[in-house]
Simulated scan of single mutants.
Amino acid sequence: MDGKWQKRLKKFSQHFIIIVLIVIMLYPLVWMIGSSFKESSKIFVEAHSIIPSSWHPENYIEGWKGFGGISFFTFFKNSFFIVIVTTIGSIISSTFIAYGLARVKFRGKKFWFAMMMMTMMLPFEMVMIPQYIMFNNFDMINTYWPLILPNFFGVPFFIFLIMQFIRTIPIELDEAAKMDGCNTFSIFFRIIVPLVTPAMMTAAIFSFYWSWSDFMGPLIYISKPELYPVSVALKLFSDPDNLTNWGAMFAMSTLSLVPVFIVFFIFQRYIVEGISTSGLK
């Protein structure tokens, strides 16, 4: 076998493996979308089939009605409020902290940076009870404050991401700005922020996705159904005492993925720029 056929075989093998992996990863999503159009009682009977034997688009109508007079519009509205405020707070605070750790000289900077990195190793289960006690003492249970407020003090992963991006920016830009009369805040807003926009957008995408899919946080702090986000509201379809409406559950689960896909496809180029730092060119 000559070199030409070896290259073709290698290329074919690579494409074949990629296609197989894509099918494996997309199959659960396609199965869920197909199941959202099936009759609820036949979803698991026809689990082997992706395409429904009979189409039932009314699952989306039934699911959108929600529960107890609370439609899924309310749940989507709650999720968007939490996600938007959380994302804004986490990006603004993380960018400020990253700039301070990357550019500003102060005593104990290495210590505080090490402490911040150590918090990334703490699982949520470790801080869950202390945080609940703290917010309960602040009388913030059944409000969105426990879900939103911590993000206004910086997210360690975003701080590290933006900080590493800032370190790639030549320090000479700061010095030139100082010679032109800029202070620390002017340098931050006029020089640093425009250059780290790709990293900030990358962090914003991750923040949107994490906040949108967060289930444990709202489940712990919120007990009023009218305040539920989509992630918790989907659980209400499952009723161990009565018949679970699987069709409506899969229909609303499919709709809950739409905002995530829209945000990802619109801003996906920023992920590449945030990682490769091509925005500095």
Rank of each mutant, 00 (worst) to 15 (best):
Ile171Met: 11
Thr119Met: 04
Asp174Leu: 07
Gly154Ala: 09
Ser90Arg: 02
Thr86Leu: 01
Met121Leu: 13
Met128Cys: 04
Gln164Trp: 08
Pro130Ile: 10
Ile171Ser: 14
Ala98Pro: 07
Asp174Lys: 04
Leu147Ile: 02
Leu122Ile: 13
Ile148Asp: 00
Phe124Thr: 05
Met134Asn: 13
Met121Cys: 02
Leu195Ala: 07
Phe153Asn: 04
Met117Leu: 15
Met115Cys: 11
Ile88Ala: 10
Arg190Phe: 12
Asp139Met: 11
Phe157Arg: 10
Tyr132Ile: 09
Met116Ala: 01
Arg107Trp: 15
Phe160Gln: 12
Phe158Leu: 11
Gly100Leu: 14
Phe185Ser: 11
Ile191Tyr: 09
Thr95Phe: 05
Phe157Asn: 12
Met140Arg: 04
Ile166Asn: 08
Met134Leu: 15
Pro146Met: 02
Phe111His: 02
Phe111Val: 10
Pro198Ala: 10
Phe81Met: 14
Phe153Ile: 04
Phe106Ile: 06
Glu172Ile: 09
Tyr99Ala: 07
Val104Gln: 08
Leu101Asn: 10
Phe189Asp: 07
Val85Tyr: 00
Leu147Ser: 02
Gly89Asn: 00
Phe135Val: 00
Ile171Thr: 13
Met115Pro: 00
Phe185Met: 15
Glu175Leu: 11
Thr197Leu: 12
Met201Asn: 02
Glu175Val: 07
Ile169Asp: 06
Pro130Glu: 09
